[in-house]
């Protein structure tokens, strides 16, 4: 089996579901996972801004490396890394092609590198953070930071529904396959098959949305019965629930070390700009 085929045999809805759920909930005791979720949110916000404020390539290389190390330490799912690489490469190539087509010069190649690194830094930082923080903590942190209760609950409920939605989607796609008809010939570069699958994936959305809409009727009633609206009006639960969120020494160490490393990268960058 070629590498390509091997890869595609692994790219099933089932595997994607598992990887997504692992990213969301499969928490391992990594260094970042021990942090207060508010600190993580703050950190990722800072790190999605910093790279855009510089053109110095040494600094950008440093930042990319730093976030890559953090992503590695947080054990980001291989699927996400793969998607990132595909994303970065495809973006890089299309920018280069566009630039060559318009400007007809290879120098653009070098001009595109910084943008690519910036995107990579932000993506790596985001992946590291969201792998280390389950949706529950994220939602609690948002609530503590003053985001309305309905929204923060929506975040955690959305994640909770994800596996159900994927399963439903998978079953509907199966429904199409159990009655549909594959194109007789694969076509050039399997183009007919690809078209068939893409069409099916799009068509399956509509039944999924309708089925989901039907389910939520009970959920809405339940939220009422189980006191969710009551707690939104009275705010009593908020304090009890968020009691566990505390900034510890560990959080301050983390922000300290982070700042130090970033500062170092900047110093080196200004000393030895590429």
């Amino acid at each position: 089996m070629s590498v390509f085929q091997k890869f595609f045999s692994k790219l099933t809805v089932e595997n994607i579901k598992i990887e997504l759920m692992r990213t969301a909930y499969g928490n391992e005791p990594t260094p970042l996972a021990k942090l207060d979720p508010r600190m993580l949110i703050l950190w990722v916000l800072i790190y999605s801004i910093i790279p855009w404020l510089t053109h110095n390539q040494t600094i950008l290389i440093g930042l990319t490396l730093f976030t890559a190390v953090l992503a590695y330490m947080s054990r980001v799912s291989p699927l996400l890394i793969f998607l990132l690489i595909v994303g970065v490469i495809s973006q890089f190539t299309y920018l280069v092609f566009a630039a060559m087509f318009l400007g007809n010069s290879f120098t653009v190649l070098i001009a595109v590198i910084p943008v690519t690194m910036k995107v990579a830094t932000v993506s790596l930082a985001t992946m590291a953070v969201f792998t280390s923080m389950d949706p529950e903590k994220f939602s609690d942190a948002l609530l503590k930071l003053g985001v309305p209760g309905k929204f923060s609950f929506g975040v955690s409920y959305g994640y909770r529904m994800l596996p159900i939605l994927i399963e439903e989607y998978q079953n509907i796609i199966h429904s199409f396959r159990l009655r549909g008809k594959l194109p007789a010939k694969p076509g050039f570069l399997y183009s007919r098959y690809v078209f068939y699958y893409i069409k099916m994936c799009i068509m399956a959305f509509y039944p999924m949305m309708l089925n989901t809409a039907k389910r939520t009727r009970t959920t809405v009633e339940v939220l009422e019965v189980r006191g969710f609206s009551y707690t939104l009006e009275n705010n009593i639960a908020k304090d009890i629930k968020l009691n566990y969120l505390k900034m510890t020494k560990y959080d301050y160490y983390f922000i300290g070390i982070s700042t130090l490393i970033t500062a170092l990268i900047y110093i080196v960058g200004y000393q030895f700009p590429l």
Binding site: R160, R215, R217, T219, E221, V222, L223
Partner: peptide, 11 residues
């Protein structure tokens, strides 16, 4: 509820 699965709202 009869469709108790939709009653479960937490992970």
């Amino acid at each position: 509820y009869q469709d108790f699965e939709n009653q479960l709202v937490r992970p």
